[in-house]
Design a protein around this nucleic acid. Structure first.
Lengths: 206, 206
DNA sequence: TGATTGAACACTTCGGAAAGCATTCACGCT
DNA sequence: AGCGTGAATGCTTTCCGAAGTGTTCAATCA
């Protein structure tokens, strides 16, 4: 099930989500209260619970939305015509770096919200990693078909790639790191990884 | 200047450091007071400041000692005779994974102390990364000389390798990850990286 | 004179009471 | 029945005075 497959929300639920999202983005999760959300929607706090099991679930729905957009974006840049498999892999991770970096720097509340959810709902973090891995798998599959890449255990290799580029997609670094520096290192690591793939491909063709 | 080059400490300073270390390991940094350390050394709190500028500096001296041991250990396993350059690289990162993993799991106070210092003294974290990079550079240099490796910008490649294996040496993962799982992924990533090096080496020989 | 002391100072942490919050539920309203 | 309410509940956060702690320094010691 793709991460973007949200259960459809009725109109009331959507207005709750919208009101909550605005406050989450502006004031942060902790500084937003259920009564404020209820007030924005002209309803009582009790009624919110008819539509969402808890405050955290409202936040999760919102983050799910944000993440869905990210996945869509990654899929989009990667499926642009004329890109070779190596170019796709590079684009994938560079786009991800840029997305996380930008979000961290100019939408700090959204960033903080994601962190919050990931801590409280580890399963959601896993789901998200899998959704990304799926996009990687598709790139690898494309590479195998065009002969750009040796046949491999795609699921496993996706995981290994996620490990390899973890530094550029984890938040730990963004306090210290300047974007161009990170992007430069990402490029060089990608060069090395692609050389690895190239060797495997030429070997497998013998 | 290697990380192990500590300014020599006079006897009083050493006894302070020893007393403090015991308490840090047993009770943690926060739960250890200057008066306790002073009491252990049969002196007044004021006198501690003749030997260390602050409590944090005592802790730093201790962590510096621990880290020095780690570097020594890494250097040792890597310089065992009969190891090829690829084997050295693999051993380096697997040892580091094991060191961090073990410390996190069975010496939590020592781990917490390191984290504390790294947060308060980012410069120390950099120094530590550089000290490790130096060991990597030496491995790469050895590889170039024996022809196992193409000539490269060793400092840069060391950095890239640190990036690539960041996930296995950062702490973020140890909450979730089981050791064998991590070690398995590390091995596969190393396979890929080594394939990359091999391609570069064969190319450069043409 | 250089090492050492311990009281003084400013800052942080702590504990318990008060306020605020997410969540529930018995009850209207339509 | 289904939508909605708002007071009641129990948990968490916030205050704020008191105790504790890192650091300094004028005085003492050897």
């Amino acid at each position: 099930m793709p991460i973007t497959a949200l259960p459809p929300l009725d109109e009331t639920a959507r207005s709750i989500l919208e009101a909550a999202s605005k406050r989450f983005l502006h004031y942060g999760y902790g500084k937003t209260t259920m009564s404020e959300i209820a007030g924005d929607c002209n309803m009582s706090t009790g009624n919110l619970y008819r539509y969402f099991p808890s405050k955290l679930d409202i936040a999760e729905a919102f983050v799910r939305h944000l993440r869905g957009e990210q996945i869509r974006r990654l899929r989009e840049v990667v499926s642009r015509p004329g890109l070779s498999t190596p170019q796709k892999l590079r684009t994938f991770f560079k786009t991800k770096l840029k997305l996380v970096y930008d979000r961290f720097h100019d939408r700090p509340k959204a960033y903080e919200l994601s962190q919050e959810i990931m801590r409280e709902r580890p399963a959601f973090a896993d789901e998200w990693e899998s959704a990304e891995a799926l996009v990687l798998c598709e790139i690898l599959e494309g590479g195998e078909m065009t002969g750009d890449l040796a046949v491999c255990n795609r699921v496993r290799i996706s995981r290994i790639l996620q490990d390899a580029f973890f530094r550029f997609t984890s938040s730990a670094v963004y306090y210290e790191g300047d974007y161009d520096l990170l992007a430069g290192e990402l490029d060089e690591l990608m060069d090395l990884v692609l050389d690895g793939f190239q060797l495997r491909n030429s070997k497998s063709k013998i």
